[in-house]
Design a protein around this nucleic acid. Structure first.
Length: 453
DNA sequence: ATTAGGG
DNA sequence: CCCTAAT
């Protein structure tokens, strides 16, 4: 019991920003409004599902699946939140990463000593064990979905219903969520062993848990040649990401050596791939299982990083992905983020408010939530918007609206607003924006006989 | 430090 | 997006 308390204490300071959101999501959990089926169906992008499933499995082993659920549901909710600029799901990512890290550290599967230690310990904590039962159960339900996506024939239809009895208490869920973040290796082992014991118990009584165990066994058997290697690889991927982000955002107290060693590698490969997140959208599962999954893994990370924006602009052009908060050193070019429709609208609002040229103000008041989008970026985007609107205008008048529509997902209202603003705010020296500008420039050139060729 | 302009 | 010049 005291172990739980300790966990809570260490956990509280970590949450902070995401706390409210998490609570909200947890509420959804309890109410059972969101089911696995719904979440999956609403997302056509199941590419990263394999990977996610693995994470779920790990989390469920810890008796904490809530965080994964937060992640999944966040996607759904993000679609509803529309313009609300949630910076990122940092806390969640960090969480999963930390979980995997410690999972690696413990390596309980291959270490019977650890397992034994945990089991003996676990017997001392029957209360806590039973308390975590409900959560573990929910985890197993997730595993049902996972095994389905991974072609493991252990899933049962009712497994997909989340929290059937709703016995999950806030206390238990909170405490359990804390576990992965627990920096103490001993605590980690403790938790794991606890749930392992639990799983064994469940294996006898509940077919769901049996599914978990069978899934594990099957996987090990199937990947006999290098079980450790593959397992390690799969779990290591989130670790890299965690390291990557934590190195930028906050200083890490403890960093596993294995993950640290791969930091550079993951960084380079990730950046390379992040150039075109869109292109990475489709990644065969087969590839994911490959040895070179280092690349693929980061790609998957990108895909699942910010699905919200994709949903925001259903009919829109921008396919934003990837959450890079801090202004990266020099690779901004590589990690360029597409502009979403809400962003464009905000930009238009900002310009109508502050006019042209006050990019810093616009950034401060309209894009404060997104640390990327420097004032220069905003200005560039406006430039592009002007050009796009004018080009679109002419094209619309001329012909071929079909092609134009295909090339221009920009809504008409936004375009109109851009045009109006372009009229109101002359945008000094804007060249390609309008025909008038073109005329003026031409006239200028003729009149002044500029040095242009 | 910001902005404008060009690549 | 990046870079540079001008302010």
């Amino acid at each position: 019991m005291y172990g739980k308390v300790q966990v809570d204490e260490s956990y509280v300071p970590v949450l902070k920003d995401d706390e409210m959101e998490d609570e909200h999501l947890l509420e959804e959990h309890r109410n059972g409004h969101i089911s696995m089926d719904g979440s999956l169906d609403s997302h056509t992008t199941l590419n990263g599902m394999d990977d996610l499933g693995l994470e779920v499995l790990v989390l469920s082993m810890f008796g904490t699946s809530s965080y994964y659920w937060d992640d999944v549901e966040a996607r759904v909710l993000d679609g509803i939140l529309d313009d609300v600029e949630i910076n990122d799901l940092d806390g969640i990512d960090v969480f999963s990463g930390a979980c995997d890290e410690y999972f690696l550290d413990c390596d309980f599967v291959n270490d019977p000593e650890v397992l034994g230690y945990g089991l003996s310990k676990g017997s001392l904590l029957q209360n806590s064990s039973s308390e975590s039962h409900s959560s573990g159960f929910s985890g197993s339900s997730i595993v049902g979905g996972v095994s389905e996506s991974t072609k493991v024939p252990s899933a049962q239809p009712e497994c997909k219903n989340y929290s059937p009895d709703g016995t999950t208490t806030s206390e238990s869920s909170d405490a359990l969520r804390n576990n992965p973040s627990q920096p103490s290796n001993g605590d980690c082992m403790y938790i794991i062993s606890l749930d392992m014991k639990h799983l064994h118990e469940l294996n006898n009584d509940h077919p769901l848990a049996g599914g978990i165990l069978s899934f594990e066994n099957e996987k090990d058997a199937a990947e006999e040649p290098q079980p450790t290697a593959l397992r390690e690889k799969r779990f290591r991927k989130p670790t890299k990401r965690y390291i990557e982000e934590s190195s930028n955002l906050r200083s890490k107290e403890k960093v596993p050596t294995a993950a640290t060693k791969n930091k550079n590698l993951s960084l380079s490969s990730c950046d390379e791939l992040n150039v075109r997140p869109k292109a990475l959208g489709k990644i065969p599962d087969e590839k994911y299982r490959n040895e070179n999954s280092d690349v693929t893994l980061s790609a998957l990370k990108v895909c699942r990083g910010h699905p919200k924006k994709k949903k925001l602009e259903n009919d829109k052009e921008p396919l934003s992905s990837e959450s890079e908060d801090e202004p990266k050193r020099k690779d901004r070019r590589k990690s360029q983020k597409m502009w979403t429709l809400p962003e464009v609208k905000k930009l238009v609002d900002g310009i109508s408010e502050y006019g042209i040229g006050r990019w810093t103000n616009i950034k401060r008041f309209f894009f404060s939530s997104s640390s990327y989008r420097t004032p220069t970026d905003i200005r560039d985007k406006w430039r592009n918007l002007l050009r796009a609107s004018s080009a679109q205008k002419s094209y619309d008048k001329e012909a071929e609206q079909n092609d134009e529509l295909a090339l221009r997902p920009l809504p008409l209202d936004v375009v109109h607003r851009v045009r109006e603003l372009a009229k109101i705010h002359p945008y000094p020296r804007a060249r390609g924006s309008k025909k008038s500008c073109v005329r003026s420039s031409l006239g200028k050139r003729n009149f002044q006989r500029k040095r242009c060729s």
